[in-house]
Amino acid sequence: MAYETISFSTNNGIATLMLNRPDRMNALNSQMRAEITEALGSIGDDVRCVVMTGAGAGFCSGQDLRDAAAGADIEGTLRREYEPMLKAVTECRAPVIAAVNGVAAGAGANLALAADVVIAVESAYFTQAFTKIGLIPDAGGTWILPRLVGHARAAGMMLFAEDISARQAADWGMIWEAIPEAEFVETVQARAGHLAKGPSATYVAVRRALRESGGNDFATQLEVEARLQGEAGRSADFREGVASFIEKRPPNFTGR
């Protein structure tokens, strides 16, 4: 499928989804949200990892306030367009890396944080800019952020709407790592390559276990682990992993 606001390509098991409105700092409009949802929903078994990044100088500056739909029916837009897009990220059939190459603001920050792993260039920053225009954080931010950095830091980010550098975000545990610009592309490619060669179905199960843990007590989470581990234990990748360990060779995982 041809896209206008994103580019989407696959190579060696890695799908690259690039937000592609650099003249608007990759701000989200209705068409982009639909295209992100469509692209992530279309991936098949050949995709073992997804890298989501931005064209130009920024990752995503958030909602495009010039979009005709921006102020017409905010609640309806969140329900009809944002929710499917964010679920497409969190329920993707392959692990998702957000490669944050510049500013990630508002809904753009929360789109990045919805990924399984966030890797940012050191010059990038994150901001919950919603209160600057009289809105509350959305796009999952009020759920994701306090679980990553705790209530106090989440509240401070949201109320003061201050920029948080990639290095500070990494120190807080908000993202996985902040990388110098000269090493950023190579690091993202290496991380994506590692996931693409690994037991991708198991990675998705790890995601499910982590996300379910947020609302579970310990006993319930033990049940979740047993169920998901049972599924993993019946997989071809588990059999291959054990065989490769015994035979002292690298595993050849298939994602099944």
Rank of each mutant, 00 (worst) to 15 (best):
M1D: 02
Y3I: 01
S7G: 11
N11K: 15
T16P: 07
L17T: 05
L17K: 08
L17I: 04
L19Q: 01
R21T: 01
D23W: 00
A27K: 01
A27E: 03
A27T: 01
L28A: 07
N29Y: 04
S30W: 01
Q31M: 14
Q31G: 05
M32P: 02
T37N: 07
L40E: 03
I43Q: 08
D45I: 03
D45T: 10
D45K: 11
D45A: 12
C49K: 07
V50I: 15
M52T: 09
G54T: 12
A55P: 00
G56L: 02
A57P: 07
G58P: 01
C60G: 04
S61F: 00
S61W: 00
A69K: 04
G71S: 06
D73V: 14
L78P: 04
R79N: 11
R80C: 04
E81F: 12
E83Q: 15
P84T: 06
K87A: 12
K87W: 06
A88M: 06
C92E: 02
C92S: 06
R93N: 14
P95A: 09
I97H: 07
A98Y: 06
A98E: 08
V100M: 05
G102Q: 00
A104W: 00
A104V: 03
A105T: 07
G106H: 00
A107I: 05
A109N: 04
L113A: 05
D116K: 09
V117T: 15
V121P: 00
V121I: 12
S123C: 07
A129S: 04
A129P: 00
F130I: 01
F130H: 13
T131Q: 02
K132Y: 00
G134E: 01
G134M: 05
L135T: 07
L135S: 09
I136Q: 08
I136E: 10
P137E: 05
P137L: 02
T142A: 10
I144Q: 12
I144T: 15
P146Y: 02
R147P: 14
G150T: 10
H151C: 05
A152S: 13
A154K: 05
A155T: 11
M157E: 05
M157I: 08
M158I: 01
D163E: 12
I164M: 11
R167F: 07
R167V: 15
Q168R: 15
A170M: 06
D171V: 11
W176K: 11
W176R: 13
E177A: 15
P180A: 09
E183V: 06
E183S: 14
V185T: 14
L195G: 09
L195D: 04
K197T: 06
S200N: 09
S200M: 11
S200K: 14
S200L: 04
T202A: 12
Y203R: 12
Y203G: 13
V204C: 15
A205H: 07
A205F: 02
R208V: 14
R208K: 15
A209W: 11
A209T: 13
E212Y: 08
G214L: 09
G215I: 09
N216S: 10
D217S: 11
F218P: 03
F218A: 10
L222S: 07
L222V: 14
E223V: 14
L228W: 04
Q229I: 13
S235G: 08
A236I: 09
D237K: 12
D237F: 03
V242L: 14
A243I: 02
S244I: 05
F245C: 11
I246R: 10
N252G: 10
N252I: 07
G255V: 10
